[in-house]
Design a protein around this nucleic acid. Structure first.
Lengths: 248, 248
DNA sequence: TTTTAACTTTGATCTCGATCAAGCTCGAGG
DNA sequence: CCTCGAGCTTGATCGAGATCAAAGTTAAAA
């Protein structure tokens, strides 16, 4: 409850790790300077809630480092995660007063924030921010629709395999490795959080991970480090169109 | 296979039924005229496929009248609807070559289309189109996330009740009625299409509709006309936060 | 009018994942 | 070192919804 505020090395946009992927990606030097003047950083410890659904939300921003989740909860407590926010992902919606979802930091996290008013003015003035935001929103919409297929039609095993292959692919993109052959990555979520993302119970998540391990699709080192000896095998288990899509 | 092309009374933007809700909603007279010059209408009979996932897509457009569905299909035939396109909804994505989903006309339908190239130029020149498209995309993203909660966590009965209350609310918005008390509307989808939307089988859809009828939550006249005697009761069955949200 | 086929309903049964219930693991704090 | 508890695994059982099967309904076509 205390902080949010310990200033974690305010950065210069020039060497920001998400400079070319976030909402500012298309900005020219002068636009970047405008953004620079209205931005501020906030840090959150793992487990902290960034904002509650329904609360007044007077800022928008980008995840700089760390991971957060977007979740919806029904009155009786049933919970569905509707987004996993990784570095460069955008939080909040211009033109809306209140938060639509709970946003929770899953790891220690730093956000680059803008007060909503100035940000909206900026959007109206400079097309590059709005353009980039549209592009990012369309990508998120595609991801949400892919998730609808997963939630509505995939089996528990396919859900787990799909989730793991998304994490694996993302990890391969951030690092330099190629998407075939063996690769390793960290599981950033607890079994329970995975269950909330996949529309399962934590017991089922645990069982299916064990099953995939027994079948040699994955190997575990500890509870959180996953090794995938054959990525195509994992993709196959995910039931996706095996287009083997090139990393973008 | 034949037509698509029978010219259904090309309209003047001035008296277009979706003038103030579609992607052109914010346009000034001069911008509207530019759009007018690159637009063309296409008609589709009920059941016709507008475009197949993966196909080259050289246009974008808006649904003017009628209803279409957006669906994803796995290799083994499992199908998930990821969107229901109503009048004013936008189809296609600027900056993408191929269609991501199957688009199928569910009723006879008329679309207002723009070739992709000219539309993208227009978007780059005039901010009002891009602004409106961003707003619409954000709304669709919210709808997709609401659907994720439905698909991941709601029971079959809640899914049906949620779907019916969405249709009822939309109908109340289009017509003049208020959202409380009795209201009637048409079911635009077959049981199978509803099942694909809700992540169920058609048998379960049929059974749950029968159950809601038996319990007096809805009444049916024929297979397709639904009467809701008490809308709050239906909302309650849907399991949603009962904020009784005012129609926007 | 009869035929036909798409759509819907209902019944019987099965199965996957939920639920209930112990234990296990491992790292932080005393 | 031990204790504690959060997170994870595994087993036993249950039940909502899927699946398999058969009729019923309706509207268009012949």
């Amino acid at each position: 409850m205390l902080n949010d505020l310990k200033n974690s090395a305010p950065r210069d946009c020039g060497d920001c790790p998400i400079r070319h992927r976030a909402v500012c990606a298309r900005c020219e030097a002068d636009e970047l300077e405008q953004l620079d003047q209205i931005k501020y950083y906030r840090s959150f410890e793992a487990g902290r809630t960034v904002i509650w659904a329904g609360d007044q939300m007077d800022f928008v921003g980008s995840v700089v480092t760390g991971i957060a989740t977007l979740t919806q909860t029904m009155e009786d407590g049933r919970t569905q995660m509707v987004g996993l926010l990784l570095p460069s992902d955008f939080v909040g919606r211009p033109g809306r007063e209140t938060a639509a979802y709970d946003v929770v930091a899953v790891s220690d996290m730093v956000m680059c924030c803008f007060r909503k008013g100035p940000f909206e003015e900026m959007m109206a003035r400079t097309p590059h921010v709005a353009q980039r935001l549209l592009e990012m929103t369309l990508d998120e919409l595609d991801a949400a629709r892919e998730w609808m297929l997963l939630l509505g039609r995939k089996t528990a095993r396919e859900k787990i395999a799909s989730f793991l292959s998304i994490l694996a692919r993302r990890n391969a993109t951030l690092n330099l490795s190629q998407t075939t052959g063996a690769l390793m990555f960290d599981l950033p979520l607890t079994r329970e959080a995975m269950a909330d993302y996949l529309g399962l119970t934590l017991e089922t998540v645990s069982r299916q991970i064990s099953a995939l391990k027994k079948d040699g699709v994955i190997e575990l080192q500890g509870k959180r480090l996953v090794k995938v000896p054959d990525f195509d095998r994992l993709l196959d288990e995910a039931g996706d169109d095996s287009d083997g899509g090139v990393l973008s």
